[in-house]
Simulated assay, not measured.
Amino acid sequence: STTRKPVSQASIELVFDNSDGTLLGEYGAYAEISIRRKVTRDSQTTYYLNGTKCRRRDITDIFLGTGLGPRSYSIIEQGMISKLIESKPEDLRNFIEEAAGISKYKERRRETENRIRRTHENLARLTDLREELGRQLERLHRQAQAAEKYQEYKAQERQLKAQLSALRWQALNEQVGQREAVIGNQEVSFEALVAEQRNADASIERLRDGHHDLSERFNLVQGRFYSVGGDIARVEQSIQYGQQRLRQLQDDLREAERSRLET
């Protein structure tokens, strides 16, 4: 119908009556056998036996020897009789084997032969794998020996490093002893220098006290010097003034004498 919406899947189911026990094996106890096929839009097919998901192979195996297999003779289609009459001996034998139920056993034998062939192939692969594992084991054995040698060398290296560290420690200990002796001598020299410095500081302090006394005496003498200098300056100024006054009087006297002579 054009009005019906497309669906994402389709399924078909066939129900077979097995009340007479035609089917044997795992499903022989069921009175009905339900076979369903579901096809999705992405071409995925799923098969179900009595509602249980299964393989297509499982469905094919059920109908082997029942006449409902791929070469079914239970359902006679148009032209099938003439096809049987005109069929080749090989095709006719297939129909006879299907009717006699032999096809099921031949299929089982084919499957068994295929499994045996796959088993031989697996054994061959296992042989190759065993040889490869043998080579890997040999390589691992060599690596293990190399690792043991490496461990031995590492142990020797640690021992040599320990010995070297002990020798270095001994040498450093001797150097420390020598340095301590030098430091002791330098401490003695330092104490002597400190004593000399203290004596020098005492001498400097005495000289500083003497310098202070001399500075006071110098300041006193300098004060006297400046005082005497001031007195001398005042006397010199008085002398200079007296000399100027004397010259002025002498000039006045000469001027008076000249005036007297003129008169």
Rank of each mutant, 00 (worst) to 15 (best):
Q243S: 04
L172H: 10
I102Y: 02
E205T: 07
A31S: 11
L246T: 01
G210Y: 14
E86H: 10
I232K: 03
G28Q: 05
E26Y: 14
K38E: 09
R217W: 07
V235R: 05
R234A: 11
R56D: 14
S103Q: 04
N173D: 12
R208T: 11
V182E: 14
Q159Y: 07
G184F: 02
L172T: 07
N114T: 13
E111C: 08
L246V: 01
R254K: 08
S87W: 01
L137H: 03
D213V: 07
L84W: 07
I81W: 09
T263C: 04
T112S: 13
K53I: 07
E174M: 07
S215R: 09
S189V: 08
L220R: 08
R245Q: 11
R224E: 08
A29E: 08
D91I: 10
Y47N: 00
P6D: 02
V182K: 09
R118P: 01
S72F: 05
S215C: 11
Q244R: 06
L164P: 00
T22I: 08
F218S: 09
Q78C: 01
L160T: 08
R57W: 05
G242Y: 02
Y150M: 12
L24F: 15
R234Q: 06
E191G: 03
Q143E: 13
I183G: 01
T127G: 12
Y73H: 06
R247Y: 04
S165V: 05
V228G: 00
E107F: 13
